[in-house]
Amino acid sequence: MAVSQERISVHSLADLKNTTDDALPTYLNSLGFKQSHTLTDTRLALGYSAFAICSATFYWDYKFGFENTKQYTTIAVIIYTILNSILTFWIWGVEKGTVYIGTSKTTGEKIQIQSKTEKHVPKYCLTVTTTDKNGRKKRKIVKKEFKDWFDAKGHFHTKPFQRMLAGSVDAIGRADPKNAVKEGEKEKVVVEDKRSMDEKWASLLAESAGVEENGASTATPSKGGKKRGKKA
């Protein structure tokens, strides 16, 4: 099972989201989706034109002084403001957190995935819009906890993440039937027993001492214990 070498801080929601966002395209592209970069490229083009205008302004201001270049600076400021407003609109109104747009090479389905997180809630919220060949749109909201594919140490687990996507989005499930396990069944496979021998002993002892445990979680007082304990 693929586990990332890198570790992130599980306490940083931004890290959790970014790592997951980055893993999404890799997975979908491997399934034969063709990624479209139009949104990102437009954003980059807007941003870099604005930046170019700013650099030019800086240059002529530095070279020729303020008084001699006043008109140009005025125009540049106006254009910069306009470009920046379009950019802001693009990010908030058009991209809306889009992390992936791709078309399936086999079925011709178009899939758009937007991701977001709410403050202090460790859940990954996806809005998946699929458009089939006839142009029919379907929108689905998927909300999953990050702990399903991050372990307590902050390693990213590819398999449960892929199962989560394939299991909850039909279009992805069709492209990756092996991973398309339906909800309920999934939970069991997701959690790996990564405890060391000592921890297992400790939990066995705890069990015999009458401490109740639920499912795959452990009540060990180790570092990861608290995180896992929450999993019900």
């Binding site: 604005a50 201001d61 403001t81």
Partner: peptide, 14 residues
């Protein structure tokens, strides 16, 4: 990074 710098500069110029 560039936009933070350039926005600050352009606000100043504005």
């Amino acid at each position: 990074f560039g936009l933070i710098l350039s926005t600050a500069f352009m606000m100043w110029k504005g």
